[in-house]
Design a protein around this nucleic acid. Structure first.
Lengths: 74, 74
DNA sequence: TACGGATGTAATATATATATTGCATTATGT
DNA sequence: ACATAATGCAATATATATATTACATCCGTA
C-alpha cells in the first residue's frame, strides 16, 4: 500500500494529529497508512484528499507493477 | 459512496462476475460497490482501476460538496 | 537534566468490508 | 414455454480496518 500521504501532509504543514482530526480518524490510523501498513477505505482516502487539497491520483495512485498499464490507458 | 464503476465496467464489456474474478472478490462485492452501498478498500479500488484501465480519479473521484456525495452520507 | 511535541508501535476491542450461500427478477435466445 | 446469463438482495460468518490505551524514541529548548 504505497502512497504519498506523508509528503502531502507535510507540504500542508499538518501534523499526523491535525490530519487525523480533519479526517475524523485517530492519529494511529494516519500513521499506519503513511507507513503503508494498511489499506484505507475509499471514504478515508477521499477525506485525506480533501484535507490536503489533492486528488486520489495525486495521493494514492500507484501503477500496477511494470509498464504494461500505461499503454492501454488512453 | 458514489462512483463510476458500473459505467467503466460496461464500457469494457465486462459482467459483474468477470470484474469480480479479475479483481479477486465476489460478484456481490462488485454489485454493492456499484450500488454505492459500501465503501471499498483502496486496494480493491486500485484492482478495479487496473481491470477497467482507468485511474482512481476517473472511477472514484467525487467532489466534496457534490450532491450525490452529500445524499449518501446519512 | 527535565519537559513537551511529534512520531512509531503493540494489545485488545469494536465496526464494517467481504465471503458464502441461496433465491428472486429481468432480459435474451431457442 | 423453457433455458440460461446477468443482476439484486438477504442472512450469516469471517477477515480486517479502525479505535482505544499505553508506552517508547527522537528532537528542540529551557
Amino acid at each position: 500500500m504505497d502512497n504519498h500521504v506523508k509528503v502531502a501532509r507535510v507540504s500542508k504543514n499538518l501534523t499526523q494529529q491535525q490530519l487525523a482530526e480533519k479526517t475524523g480518524v485517530t492519529r494511529q490510523t494516519i500513521s499506519l497508512i503513511e507507513k503503508g501498513k494498511y489499506n484505507p477505505s475509499l471514504k478515508l482516502c477521499l477525506e485525506i484528499c480533501y484535507a490536503v487539497n489533492k486528488t486520489l491520483d495525486e495521493v494514492f495512485w500507484v501503477e500496477k507493477g511494470s509498464d504494461s498499464f500505461e499503454e492501454n490507458k488512453g
